[in-house]
C-alpha cells in the first residue's frame, strides 16, 4: 500500500516537474535559436570557398540533462514491450539543440560568422549505476570562422 503511494507520488512529481522544465526549456531554446540564426552551423568538413580571410578556432558546447522519474518509468515499460521510447526523444532533442546553441553562443562571442564541421557526441553518464536516475550528456563541437 505504502509502496504504491510512494510510486504514484514519485511519478506525479516526475511528471509535474519534468513537463514544466521541458516546456520552459523548449521556450528558451526557440527564443535563442531565433536570435542565433545569423550564425550558420554546417556539418560539411570543407570550409566555404571564396573568402580566404578567416581565422579558425575550435568552439564547443556541452549539456547534461537528467531524465525525470516519469520519463524513466515509461521508458522502462517500453523496455518490456519494445517500440519508440517517445519519452526520451524530447529529452535528446532538447540536449542536441541546447548543445548547438552553446556552440553558436561561443562562436558569436568570439565574433565568428560561420561554424563548419560540427560534430555531436552523446553519452549517458549513469552507466553502471543501476539505481541512479539516468542523465544524458550531449557535446557539440566545430570550427568557427572569424573574419580577420
Amino acid at each position: 500500500m505504502i509502496d504504491l503511494v510512494i510510486l504514484i507520488s514519485l511519478l506525479a512529481l516526475g511528471y509535474g516537474f519534468g513537463q514544466y522544465a521541458e516546456k520552459k526549456h523548449y521556450t528558451s531554446i526557440r527564443k535563442r535559436e531565433l536570435i542565433l540564426r545569423t550564425i550558420p552551423v554546417v556539418a560539411s568538413k570543407i570550409p566555404p570557398q571564396g573568402n580566404p580571410n578567416y581565422d579558425s578556432q575550435l568552439v564547443s558546447g556541452s549539456v547534461v540533462i537528467s531524465v525525470d522519474y516519469f520519463k524513466r518509468f515509461v521508458a522502462g515499460l517500453r523496455g518490456l514491450f519494445g517500440g519508440r521510447i517517445t519519452s526520451y526523444e524530447t529529452l535528446l532533442d532538447r540536449a542536441r539543440r541546447e548543445a548547438i546553441l552553446r556552440v553558436k553562443r561561443e562562436a558569436k562571442d568570439m565574433g565568428a560568422e560561420f561554424v563548419f564541421n560540427i560534430k555531436l557526441e552523446t553519452a549517458s553518464i549513469h552507466k553502471g549505476r543501476g539505481n541512479g536516475i539516468g542523465s544524458v550528456e550531449v557535446l557539440a563541437y566545430g570550427t568557427a570562422l572569424i573574419p580577420n
Binding site: L11, Y15, Q19, R30, R37, P40, V42, P48, F70, K71, F73, V74, L77, R78, F81, R84, T86, S87, E89, T90, L92, D93, R96
Partner: peptide
C-alpha cells in the same frame, strides 16, 4: 547555401506522455 528555418517537432513524437503511460501500465 541557404539558411531555412527548421520546422519544430521533427525529431520527437507527438504522443501524449500520459496516454502512453496509461496504455503501457495497464498493459
Amino acid at each position: 547555401y541557404s539558411n531555412p528555418k527548421i520546422p519544430e517537432g521533427i525529431n520527437t513524437s507527438k504522443t501524449n506522455p500520459l496516454k502512453e503511460f496509461a496504455v503501457l501500465t495497464i498493459g
